[in-house]
């Protein structure tokens, strides 16, 4: 029997990594830094989670480690794009390559296995059968909207993504806010990683979810809540595969194809339903102080 409640809960969990990832994108791009590196940050985060959880026998340490791993890469992305003014997409791509090698190398060094870790039993607690982290991202999106609209930090971060020269002329430390945006992006990528599959790390296990997060962010027109809702659209599409045997029109669709549903859906959405998006005006633009 198709259990609608179970489907809804399961979908909430499946959506979590993409939803946190989409928020990660929102923080970075609101500050004007295009962040393709979310994929690599999530991948590193997944490894660090398992490492931290096993080493300290605690899922909380797992989450902290996941955040640490993702943040380290986000700082690297910041150094390349903000301090050294490298093209954002180029830096992000290089970091993704780095993450793929780095996680394998660390897994080999720490666990003696290159493409997977041992099973980790220190996973976040479950509430109604799903990862407890899956209950927070909608609230986090609302909190983010509040931060952007109502706090000094949010106002300044937005100004750096829209017109960094203007912000600079008013004494706002543009470089610092851009770093803050990217680093927060890393924190959220760490949460995305913690909500993905904390039982074990497997090489390249993020399988493009970081990029899917960016698609959700674009579809949500850079608005935190809409980005999360778009992520949930993709997440529920992915959830269908667990239920395909119970859903009449999916029974005969091979499972290999159902796997690609969220990606196909993302393409369909981008092709057919994407209205005019308004990215921050200086998103991806290299900011230089006048004299450099």
């Amino acid at each position: 029997m198709f259990n609608i409640w179970y489907f809804l809960l399961r979908g909430l969990q499946t959506s979590a990594p993409v939803a946190y990832g989409a928020l990660a994108g929102v923080y970075s791009e609101t500050g004007g830094i295009v962040n393709i590196a979310i994929e690599g940050m999530m991948l590193t985060g997944t490894f660090f989670f398992v490492w931290g959880a096993i080493a300290f026998k605690s899922w909380i340490m797992g989450v902290l480690f996941a955040i640490l791993g993702a943040v380290l890469l986000s700082i690297l992305h910041g150094i390349a794009t903000i301090t050294f003014k490298v093209n954002h997409v180029v830096s992000g791509t290089a970091i993704n390559l780095l993450a793929m090698g780095l996680t394998r190398f660390m897994s080999m060094q720490i666990f003696g296995m290159e493409t997977q870790t041992p099973v980790n039993s220190y996973i976040p607690p479950r509430l109604f059968g799903i990862n407890i982290l899956a209950y927070f991202y909608i609230a986090l999106a609302l909190l983010t909207i509040w931060i952007f609209r109502r706090t000094r930090f949010g106002l300044r971060l937005r100004s750096c993504g829209e017109n960094p020269w203007g912000a600079d002329s008013l004494g706002v430390n543009v470089y610092a806010y851009k770093y803050a945006g990217v680093i927060l992006s890393g924190v959220l990528a760490g949460l995305a990683a913690s909500s993905l599959y904390p039982n074990q790390w497997i090489a390249e296990m993020t399988a493009g979810r970081g990029y899917l997060s960016l698609a959700a962010m674009i579809f949500g027109n850079y608005n935190p809540l809409n980005a999360v809702l778009a992520a949930m659209l993709f997440g529920y599409a992915e959830t269908l595969r667990y239920f395909s045997a119970q859903i009449p029109f999916l029974v005969n669709v091979p499972s290999t194809l159902i796997q690609s549903f969220p990606y196909v859906l993302a393409l369909v959405v981008l092709a057919g339903f994407l209205g005019k998006t308004r990215p921050p005006k200086a998103d991806g633009v290299i900011f230089e102080k006048g004299e450099d």
Partner: peptide, 29 residues
Amino acid sequence: VHQHFMLVPGLTVLENIILGSEPAKGGVL
């Protein structure tokens, strides 16, 4: 006032005026 205006698009007039010297309590505008 710079020759090329330094206004921040996407922000309201009020936000533009206070940016950088925002009155705030504990970081909240």
